[in-house]
Structures are given as structure tokens and as C-alpha cells.
Design a protein around this nucleic acid. Structure first.
Lengths: 338, 338
DNA sequence: CTGAAAGCGCTTACAG
DNA sequence: CTGAAAGCGCTTACAG
């Protein structure tokens, strides 16, 4: 049931009629890619304004123009981390008349095909689960791709963008801080892993921890592969009872909070006996007691840079021939837990 | 630079050639809206499978078919709350070959026009900021709309979907719990408000609080309009010093955590002297000390129902003539803070 | 300088 | 039973 005051879809034909010019002229004014008589241009501009005309993104995309549609692939849509990045990207996208679709990664063989078929103007990959071969295929197929370097993408070549979010350096600084506080027995506690898989060498945070420990001649120790918080708590208790530990570097703040609870339940004093550092600067860090020292990832900058690089990749497709790299810094947020 | 192993866009023409039938036949097989000779149908199906064909969503949308593109409008993309809802919706959307674009609400007059022009198959509104008139216009224009009832949408009519997420009842139960613990001086602490605006009558949580207090003959007291956590902490201290308070019902968990900190800094014991209840069951609730009693909103069900209703609205457009309402329940999560 | 025309990948009424 | 044709809203090479 349509009412009289329903929204209308204004087409190029409406504009042409309103302006009293041919439809072709309207297109050329919109796209600005041909000389158009000044008077006609004015008339078209007025008509566009009056009718609030916006060319249909679908029709344009069909003709090989931009679809004004971007895809963001994330491993975990529910995380606070991605929320901030997306929010930042969305602000920019909206200004450019662009929409961002979200997608979590799919093991699905068909996934790439689906993505490719949708004619996205660009794809931002914030998931560690897309294999190099798929990423490469996308790039080779001419799709502008920006990689958030959650894991290392060493083999990738061609024209694409990559944002190093500072995870490796950030992790080293966290561990260094613990070392400066004279912590020697520093345990790396990995994220929960639904598959029970352990901390990968390809994980930047783990690598930062490992390198920083080894360069200080300290022993590397890892607690990983836990599936649930309960399992983590239990295994942590076991580990803690058997080994000397005076510092914890946790892959995420949530993990840090979980082990802090476990420590406190055992009557261990933080940071007097054990120092704890998290990662991400989630909201919870300020609310737990003691407040949690952590590493801030500049999610605002990640979002802004991702969009900016993608734009260059799209607009200057022909002139960009090298990969575009951006290096971002993390910021240590010192609180009470160290 | 395209490589030999780049992705290809398979069109209907490719399928027709592969199957040795006319393009028309391919369309009818895909859409299943006309009798097609069994043999040909088989051949087409084989070709589709072999070539991994999927009709272009844009071309279909141009012809008035579904665009397989849905829009979700949220007030706060960064919140954990929306992350879970989106994640749930995305799972369903992907199965249906659909993408979900995200958008935060825009004051922008043009916003509706932009949305309408994009030919979304449907719009899910999870924002309190879109005025009734805009919502109504969208519905009147024939766009399938599902409303998450963050605020009351009493005036809206036509064919649309509405999910009552149980906020009002949930709030009443929170306050009732405090009352059962013999709390009498229960303060409602509102969310931070960038604009400094106070708790609206239209807010379900506030209404639940108010009604539950009044029905018990207890005084209503509100702390609202704070712009920052610092301002909230300061004003809370002032309020607490001047008034007797033995219970706090906070609009969100983050607010609850902030005031818990303020209480603890003043040496107040929770829950012995003051009981605190939050709302949302965010992750942080389990990590703070004392752990926070809160209300779980079934975000999984919200996401699932939203998609399900939207699907009905889209597919059975003609047979659905009444609004579709769904009532969801919240779940009290009792922890240590009460 | 500018318009008519072809065509992007589809759907479906129309005409056999 | 099924194909050629018109047309969705655009872009742009082509031909004045």
C-alpha cells in the first residue's frame, strides 16, 4: 500500500526532462568527463538539486563504474575491537556515498566467488583466516584489497594496501614493561581457541613476546589452546601451582581479566606478586580492580587509513603500481596491574 | 594487472552456451517461475554448478528483483550490544546470499533518500534517533522495515515488523529485585549523553524503573544528562553525599561499573550498603569485583527474529497485511552486586 | 559541441 | 512449450 507521500526514485530521465536537456548531457554533467555547455550544465545542476537526484549505484555498477559498496571481512564481528574500526570507516564511507557490508570469514570454497560477483569497489580484510592464496587471487583479479596485518602477509604481491597495526612492537613493549619491573618468569596467555589450536608463530603478539623474552635471555612459556574460560582458569591454576610466575602477558584484555580473577581467587596480590598486562585497551580495563595495564591499538587510525588507502587503490588504479604500506603505532596505557 | 588465474565473472550467457540453451531458459530455471523442459532444466543446472554461476545481484535489482542487500541502522556501531546482533544476522544473511550494510543514524535530511535510492531489500532500524515520520515514510514507500523497539513506536502503522526486546519488563524486574532485597532509595542512573539531554519518557528502561517504583510507592530519583564518565563520577559523588541511596539501577553495565568505582573509592561496600544492577550483560560484568548483576538481552534472538521477519516481509509482501510483532524475554543474571 | 545508439546482465510480457 | 524482444538506469564510444 503506497501513500501519496511515499519516497520516489528519481532517474536520469526525470532530471533531463526537468532541465530540458538530453539524458546524455545529464550523465556527462554528473560524471564530469566531457565538455558541456555552461548553460546546460547549470540547468542540470539545478534540476539535480531540486529533484534530489542521485544516480542509481546499481545501474552504474552494471556499466563498470564504481558500485560504492565496500566489504569488510572480520573474524569476529562481536568484538569491541572491530566495532570501533567499523564505526570509523562507516563515517568516511557515508561521506563518500558508500556503504560498507560486513562479513565474517567463511571457510566455504565459494566465498571468493561470491565476493567477486558482488562487484565490491574494494575489500578490507581484517581476518586472519583468509588464506594467502585467496587474498592473492582477489588481488590478481583486480579487486582493490586492504589487509589489516593481524598476521603476516609476507608472500602477497601485486597492488594492494597493508596496514601494520603495530601488534608486534606493541607486544614487545608490553613485555619490556614487565621486564623493567623486574619480572623474569613471564607467561604468555593466548586467546581462547574454539578449535583448541595453540599460539601460532604467525601471531604478531606471540612473536613480539617471544622475541622480547629471548633477547633478554628469559625463558619463553605459553599457556594456550584453551577452549573456554573455565578451561583456561583450571589450566592456569595448574600451571601457576607448578611453575614460578611473576608476570603475565595476555593476548587480550578479556583473557587478562579472566586470569586476574583466577589469581585473586587464589589470594595472589596484583601487582605485588604478579604483574598483568592485557592488550586492546577495552572498556573493561578501567573497571576491573586493579585497573588493567594494556596496549591501545589505534582503531580510529586503522579505520581511517583503511578507507584512505582503499580510495587511492580505487581512484588511482592505474597510477598505483606498488603496494601501499602504512605503519601504525600502539600506545601503552599504564594502570594499576603492573 | 590481471593474472591467468584471476577470478572470472560468469554471466547468464556463459551458462546458456555451456548448457546449449537460450538465455531465457536459464533465467526461468534460475527463477523457477515457468515450466521448462526437464532435460533442459537438468542441463542448465549442471552448467550452473560447473561454472559456479550466480546471477548478478545488481542486474536483478535493476529489473526490480531483490537486491539481496539489507541495511542495518544502529545508533552506536561500536557497542558490544550491536556486535552480537549483527553477527547473528550476518550468519543468516550469508546463507541466503545476502549482504548486510551498516549505517549509523544520520540527522541529514537526505538520509532517507539515500537509503531509498539504494534499493535495499529491507531495513532494520536499531536506532532511537530516526524520527517516526521518517520511519513511516519508509514503510509507506514499500520498503520492508523491522523496528527494534528501543523506544516506543506507537504511531507507526502499515505493514512492518517490530521486535519488542523486553526492555521495559526487564527494567521492572531489575528494580523489583532491588526492592526484594529491601532497597527503598533506588536511584536510576542514565547513560552518558553527548548532548547533555536527560532520561526520556520514551526510554523503556526508564519507564520500567519509574513504573516499578511508583507501583511500590517508592520515590523516583534520576541522575542523568552527564556527558562524560568524569562528570558522572563527580555528580554521583555529590548526589550520594546529599541523598540517602541504597540501590542503583543503571541503564547500562558500563555506567554501573563507573558508579561502582565511585562508590568503592568512597569506601562504600557493595552490596552490603548499596546494591547495584546493570543492564545488557556485557563481558565486563563477569570481570569486575563484585561481579555485576545485570539483565541479559537475547541478542541472538533479536538478530534471528529480525532476519526472519524481514524475510517474511520481503517474500510474502502481498499476503502480509498486518504488522508483525514479536515479544522477546530478557533474562536476569544474578551475581554479587545485589 | 551534442544526441542517438549500443550495451552492462538481467526479468518477464509478448508472440509464436 | 519456448525464443526474441523490450526495458531496468545508467555510461560512453560513435557519428554527426
Amino acid at each position: 500500500m503506497k501513500y501519496s507521500n511515499a519516497l520516489k526514485r528519481t532517474t536520469r530521465a526525470d532530471v533531463a526532462k526537468e532541465a530540458g536537456v538530453s539524458e546524455t548531457i545529464v550523465s556527462y554533467v554528473i560524471n564530469g568527463n566531457r565538455y558541456v555547455d555552461e548553460k546546460k550544465r547549470r540547468k542540470v545542476q539545478k534540476a539535480v538539486e531540486k529533484l534530489n537526484y542521485r544516480p542509481s549505484p546499481m545501474a552504474r555498477a552494471l556499466k563498470g563504474k564504481n558500485s560504492n559498496h565496500i566489504l569488510f571481512i572480520a573474524d569476529d564481528l562481536t568484538s569491541e575491537h572491530f566495532g570501533k574500526i567499523i564505526s570509523e570507516m562507516e563515517k568516511i564511507a557515508y561521506k563518500d556515498g558508500c556503504f560498507i557490508s560486513l562479513c565474517s570469514d567463511r571457510a566455504d570454497d565459494d566465498f571468493l566467488n561470491v565476493v567477486y560477483n558482488w562487484s565490491f569497489d574494494g575489500v578490507i580484510i581484517g581476518s586472519a583466516a583468509i588464506p594467502d592464496s585467496s587474498v592473492q587471487l582477489l588481488i590478481d583479479s583486480g579487486v582493490p584489497v586492504v589487509l589489516l596485518e593481524i598476521r603476516s602477509y609476507e608472500g602477497i604481491h601485486g597492488t594492494y594496501g597493508k596496514i601494520n597495526t603495530g601488534l608486534y612492537d606493541g607486544a614487545r613493549r608490553c613485555v619490556k614493561l614487565l621486564q623493567e619491573k623486574n619480572r623474569r618468569r613471564i607467561l604468555y596467555v593466548d586467546s581462547l581457541s574454539p578449535t583448541g589450536l595453540g599460539a601460532g608463530e604467525s601471531d604478531f603478539r606471540y612473536r613480539g613476546y617471544k622475541d622480547q623474552m629471548e633477547s633478554a635471555g628469559l625463558p619463553v612459556a605459553v599457556l594456550d589452546g584453551c577452549r573456554t574460560e573455565e578451561e583456561l582458569t583450571e589450566r592456569f591454576h595448574g600451571y601457576f601451582a607448578a611453575q614460578e610466575v611473576d608476570g603475565l602477558f595476555c593476548r587480550t584484555d578479556a583473557i587478562a581479566c579472566t586470569v586476574m580473577r583466577a589469581l585473586q581467587d587464589s589470594g595472589v596480590s596484583i601487582p605485588r606478586q604478579v604483574s598483568v598486562v592485557g592488550f586492546n585497551n577495552s572498556r573493561m580495563c578501567r573497571y576491573v580492580s586493579p585497573t588493567l595495564t594494556t596496549m591501545e591499538i589505534r582503531r580510529d587510525l586503522i579505520g581511517q587509513n583503511a578507507m584512505q588507502i582503499l580510495k587511492r587503490l580505487i581512484e588511482e588504479k592505474d597510477s598505483v603500481t606498488e603496494p601501499i604500506f602504512v605503519q601504525l603505532e600502539t600506545e601503552l596505557v599504564e594502570r594499576e596491574s603492573v
